[in-house]
Amino acid sequence: MDLNGKATIVTGGARGIAKGIATAFVKAGASVLIVDREEDLGNATAAELSQFGKVVFMPMDLSQHDQLHLIVDKAVAEFGKLDTLVNAAQASAQEMFAKQTREQANIAFDTGFWPTYHLMQAAYPHLKASKGSIINFGSGSGLSGMVTQASYAAAKEAIRALSKVATNEWGKDGIRVNVICPYAMTPGVEAWSQAFPDQYAASLAQVPLKRIGDPEADIGAAAVFLASDAASYVTGQTLMVDGGQTRAS
């Protein structure tokens, strides 16, 4: 699964699953543009990963939707092309659905769905030229209807639906679009485990492999596969990288 010569954007890449993906990509030979709103952390992550290859950091608040095309412009300016777009960034507010507000729901869509939507559109001509791929992120919480995750689950399922449409419309252009639904130890999962320990314990008990995934070794490796030529005939798929927690149909 060689990514030498490939140019990649990873949103939210300063920490968590997205950092694991950025790490796996650069170690596989890709040039990576990390995008994150946390400038100090992003610069530190880029400096850390630069020992493995070319990594550039771009600070950006993904909720500024009219500015998102600048991310694609930056990647093309730095690398000369774009081969892979990884839409991994996401924020959300956890609340029981009956109590959830529109403002809380907007967090999930403004940081996850709409950035995915706009970045896919901005990246399209470049991915068409490179016969590239898009890796979006869904969630088992959308497939299973996890409590307290109404807006997050809805945004993730909207991303999966958008990915299916793009698969059908852009396949003729040689663009592959796939979705990963991960379960890995991240700051968000750690915070969730502390806020809702009973839910966390029940969730872990449902994982057949009885462990939580590693952002780089597990989720990053799956993303590298989907971006590589080894997956040249794989598109329109939702890949559950969650230790068997959710069996998608």
Rank of each mutant, 00 (worst) to 15 (best):
S141A: 14
G142R: 08
V76H: 07
A93Q: 12
M120S: 15
A98E: 14
A89G: 11
E103Q: 15
S133K: 05
S130G: 09
G80K: 14
F113W: 07
G138E: 10
L82R: 07
H126M: 05
F109L: 12
M120Q: 07
E95F: 00
G132Q: 11
T116S: 15
T111E: 07
S92W: 08
S141I: 02
S139E: 03
L127A: 08
M96R: 15
I107D: 00
A129Y: 06
A98V: 12
Y117K: 08
L82P: 04
A88P: 00
A98Y: 06
Y124P: 03
D83A: 03
A93K: 13
T101R: 04
G138P: 09
K81S: 15
K99E: 13
T111C: 09
S139V: 01
Q100D: 09
A105G: 15
F113I: 02
V86W: 05
L85C: 07
H118R: 08
G145L: 02
M96S: 08
W114L: 12
N106W: 05
S92L: 04
N106R: 15
L143P: 02
A123K: 02
D110T: 06
I135D: 03
I135W: 00
S130Q: 12
M96P: 01
Q94Y: 10
I135Y: 03
K81R: 15
L143N: 01
R102H: 13
L143F: 08
T101N: 03
N136A: 11
Q121W: 05
T84H: 11
A89W: 03
M146N: 14
